[in-house]
Write a protein that binds this DNA or RNA. Sequence first.
DNA 1: GTCGTTTATAAACATCTGTTTCAATACACA
DNA 2: TGTGTATTGAAACAGATGTTTATAAACGAC
Lengths: 227, 227
Amino acid sequence: MAHAAPASSRERDPEGRKERILTAAGAVFSKAGFDAGSVREISRRARVNVAAVNYYFDSKAGLYREVLLAAHRQLLEQEPPVTLQGGQDAQEALGSWIAFCLRFVLLKRASHPVLGKLMAHEMRQPTAALSELVKLVVRPIFDELRRIVTAVAAPSMDKTEIEMWAHHIVGMCVHYEHNAEVIERLGFSVPTTEDAIARLAGSITALALRGISGAQAGAKTLEPSSS
Amino acid sequence: MAHAAPASSRERDPEGRKERILTAAGAVFSKAGFDAGSVREISRRARVNVAAVNYYFDSKAGLYREVLLAAHRQLLEQEPPVTLQGGQDAQEALGSWIAFCLRFVLLKRASHPVLGKLMAHEMRQPTAALSELVKLVVRPIFDELRRIVTAVAAPSMDKTEIEMWAHHIVGMCVHYEHNAEVIERLGFSVPTTEDAIARLAGSITALALRGISGAQAGAKTLEPSSS
DNA sequence: GTCGTTTATAAACATCTGTTTCAATACACA
DNA sequence: TGTGTATTGAAACAGATGTTTATAAACGAC
């Protein structure tokens, strides 16, 4: 076959290619994680040669890092993180935060299709990018939650107890994404629509509010050593 | 096909080898999961030829399945699941359940070194064994939690709300194992000792008890649509 | 046109994966 | 003793992985 067919699908379009690779990588990595996600499948989905990945991103790890950063950028554009305003009701703020967190991990939309899943994979099998991701994404959001919980709780409440409460709340939220497979098998339908997510957020918020604001500052934490 | 060794002292060492392979497989699978765990590393750790794995367990999947079942057996021997006795205080039972669950996922001891981690991996990247695992291990334990929560809650409380609460509680517990890497990076030290785990269990129990028993049966679940 | 540079691709590379093959054992029993 | 069967282990298999190489094409500039 000399150069018979022009095969003019050359399409000089590096930006388009880079973009396609990034999108495909987001899909693959968010589904399979970094290790199990293969460069060859990414290149297949992006309809580019395998070597293109290394040409544009140096290595698989470099591509992964750019996917994480791009997803982070995307998130900040679309969903500004919840903040406790000056005169805002703290209890209401807690409800907003929980709804935000649940939507972040559960909602599959064009706005943030991958970051939640990517972070879930990072938590299970951390890569070098995890520390950076925590510093950029997780830390600010978590600090805001701690501030809100502090405002909701009794003024003299122990700081470490408040920190624990914040972690408890995060646990309730991410549970429904992390362990969705098991939850579904237990007969509970993990919500995916805005309305159903809002209902779940309401349930978590109510439990957390009663649990936090009902605590007496001086009360000893329940000790399970009772017989 | 490996015959069960007859009564006569045939077996020069097959049981020892099988046992070594099972132990090594437990360590490898619990650390890396099924996909990323390699048969060659298992055979290396067990000081056994690669072919021995397939000789004794047919395949990698067969070995994995036996590891799961063995871990399950081990758990039931060492830690009988919590049950709500007839006259027992429901609130106390909830504390016991939460402590049990936390110890299950966090405590690294000779008694159950792997099952918690194995299940964590199953939740992220489910294999064919997940359904069986849920039916055998997770379902009974979760049902007991739901029973306890029902006993703690107001008698006329909505059944689906109670189910949600049970899931919330599970979420708080497993969070500290699933997302330990992130939690540590947020400055919170995930407990590993009996005492520290008991303290964490106390905090979760107190929050849950106030959140559950403080709920009014007729109260509407908090709606985040309030302005 | 002919340079030089950037981009694209097929092919090869080295290494890993789970599994199989096949010859060499070690043992129980005759 | 010899025979038969269970076990062992080195090597090979077929396939996948991330990455590199060498060749070829498409451009901008002269």
